[in-house]
């Protein structure tokens, strides 16, 4: 896959950092403001997709990246389940129990385990969307060649 023009590349370089920052902001403030793991993860994946589209890449490196994103996705989901399972063994033995101290309402570090779930769900959504995008790109490249 070829890259795009110099103008697009420059603008992407300037913008992608901001997009990542915004995505991470949405993920980490999931328990305080609208949004959360899913919305933020989609934005982060958008940043990656923008970079791949603007700069282009070879099919081989895309394939390698697809394996990595697919492993990341499974790992993130696994951690979510293990966090939920920890609730079964800690404290009052309830699945999905919120076992961390809950802090003050409205502060960034509060709400117990919810922000941690959000972070890993964001990771999984970003990786999953990227995997889908890469699968489509690889398919198209293979058909074209």
């Amino acid at each position: 896959m070829n890259g795009m023009t110099q103008i697009v590349k420059k603008v992407t370089q300037l913008m992608s950092g901001l997009i990542f920052m915004y995505g991470l902001y949405i993920i980490t403030h999931g328990h305080l403001t609208p949004g959360g793991g899913f919305a933020g993860g989609a934005i982060v994946a958008g940043g990656f997709i923008l970079l791949i589209l603007a700069f282009g890449s070879k099919v081989i490196s895309l394939r390698k990246e697809e394996t990595q994103t697919s492993i990341t996705e499974s790992a993130a989901l696994l951690i979510v389940i293990l966090l939920a399972l920890a609730g079964l063994f800690l404290g009052v033995h309830v699945f999905f129990n919120n076992y961390l101290p809950q802090g003050q309402v409205g502060e960034l570090i509060s709400a117990g385990v919810i922000p941690i779930y959000n972070i890993f769900i964001g990771m999984e959504v970003a990786a999953a969307l990227l995997t889908i995008f890469l699968a489509l790109v690889i398919y198209k490249e293979e058909v074209a060649s």
């Binding site: 394996t67 499974s74 790992a75 989901l77 696994l78 389940i81 939920a84 079964l88 699945f95």
Partner: peptide, 21 residues
């Protein structure tokens, strides 16, 4: 623990793509 019926297959489904690799 009824939740085990859901947790165990889910754990399997997400462990397999990582470790099975």
């Amino acid at each position: 623990i009824p939740a085990l019926y859901i947790i165990l297959p889910l754990l399997g489904a997400f462990l397999i793509p990582i470790v099975g690799h």
